[in-house]
Amino acid sequence: MSEPLLAVEDVNAYYDRAQALEDVSFEIAGGSTSIIGRNGMGKTTLCNAIMGIPPAGVTGSIRYKGTELVGRPSYKIAKLGIGYVPQGRRLFPSLSVDEHLRMISPRAGGRRWTVDRIYELFPRLKERRRNGGAQLSGGEQQMLAIGRALLTNPELLIMDEPSEGLAPTIIELLIETFKKLDEEGLAILLIEQNLGMATSIAERQLVMVAGSIAAETTAAQLLQDPELQRRYLGVEPLAAEHA
């Protein structure tokens, strides 16, 4: 009976008195999982709760390989082996592409990722290494945010809406990259609104509604069931056109 990679148990989160998460519980053993849901359902709050990023007050228990994360400072959580790609990328305007990557000190233990390997993974970044973070296109920004997170040598990569605001061709490229990372044994927790991206990366799908996990399903089931999509995501069902 080994500990799961990530165990979230009865997590509640509050902004002052407004509750953003309500009794969220799930476990990740490894592999890729995606959490889907509409805007304002608490997806980003959940990310911040796992990563220990203020300001929400968090109760309950979040364990990574048996280590309690709630109450731990953010940098210690990251050092345990959790990489974070935030919503909106959050690059540093004062730093160049190269500096974004070189500022990260690799985590002791796993030293799989180096700056050169990131440039190998995203050749576009190497071309733009001298450019500032704010001068990049949306896709390049996302690559940099992912590269930056990978350099911490994570075992679990949490990504908050990586497809946001990107062109379909870039999304395709990111999906390919994520599949590659998945094959290398990196566990991915993907927070998404984009059904296409969520279902092509992860088989296991958790649906988040109003601050709680409302359902657990699989990518195949979700794609086949327009009613499920409409109810939980409020999107025009992907399968409807073909039905």
Partner: peptide, 23 residues
């Protein structure tokens, strides 16, 4: 590296911290 972290921290402290750096 310290200098880069300082500049990044002035931009976005919480994000630097989420990258495993004790800002």
């Amino acid at each position: 590296r310290t200098g880069m972290v300082i500049r990044a921290g002035v931009d976005d402290r919480a994000m630097v911290s989420a990258l495993g750096i004790n800002i």
